[in-house]
Amino acid sequence: MRVLLGLVRRDAGAVRLLGCDLHSTAGPLPDGVAGCVETPAFYPYLSGRRNLSLLARLDGDNQIAASDAVGSLLEQVGLAAEADVAVGGYSAGMRQRLGLAAALLRSPRLLFLDEPTSALDPAGAREVRTIARRLADEGAAVVLSSHDMAEVEQLCSVLTVLNHGRVVFSGSIEELRTLAPAAVHALLRTSDDRAALDLASQRAGVKAQLVPATDDGGLEVSADIEALDAYVIALGREGVAVRALECRPRSLESLFLDLTRHDRAVDTSVVALPTLQDDSRASAVVS
């Protein structure tokens, strides 16, 4: 994303944004392109309003128009009350919102958002998603980079999964689902969940885990349809009654893990890092 925003030189290839070639890191960002990389940073001794006004001047906006736009954007991102407070006193979430306002100041037709909700509370994250959705509805392309698969699933229509810098999937979420193995995900409720779990562990092709009792209990089961049929019949033979079997679409997270599993396994064995999925990320377009 830093290459696309002209912050880091590319090793190879070309970057073309809204029809403009980005030749090097030395030039300005093309009009209509904006971005917010990781936690946004501002001058801590200036207020949020002053920071945005200076950025508007860098964009070449005249002072009166910029002042109106800054006020309106601060209101949109929920910072109107703290607009004249020095940014040094802002929380990480407030800086994230100010970063979004700074990006929106450029009236983007192409907006890059890198982990835009990582530092936000649920309400703040929801506001950011609403703004991203609204921009997309108005015709802008929003490129979102995130490790939060639930967020990607909720917001995005097209996604690209990168694993160690290589594209392992690119397409719509529906296309990703069709590529997935024919495994069925189901929520199973039985008369004896513990016995059902023991039986699942003895059967090839059936994966199961208990759902906490606080979430009404039961088991989450993944299996091919034939294996699931055989497992349900076996439960009856063992005297475990099936009270409910609810098939569910696979979550994006499980599909993502399937796509990156092989590389993670290899790398984990080499460098012994248990969280190597941090190197795998999905970037997706909200459209």
Partner: peptide, 17 residues
Amino acid sequence: RYGTWKTVLTRSRSRAD
């Protein structure tokens, strides 16, 4: 120090400016 290069270099001004 403030980590603001990414803020000022993603506007409509070149590095030369």
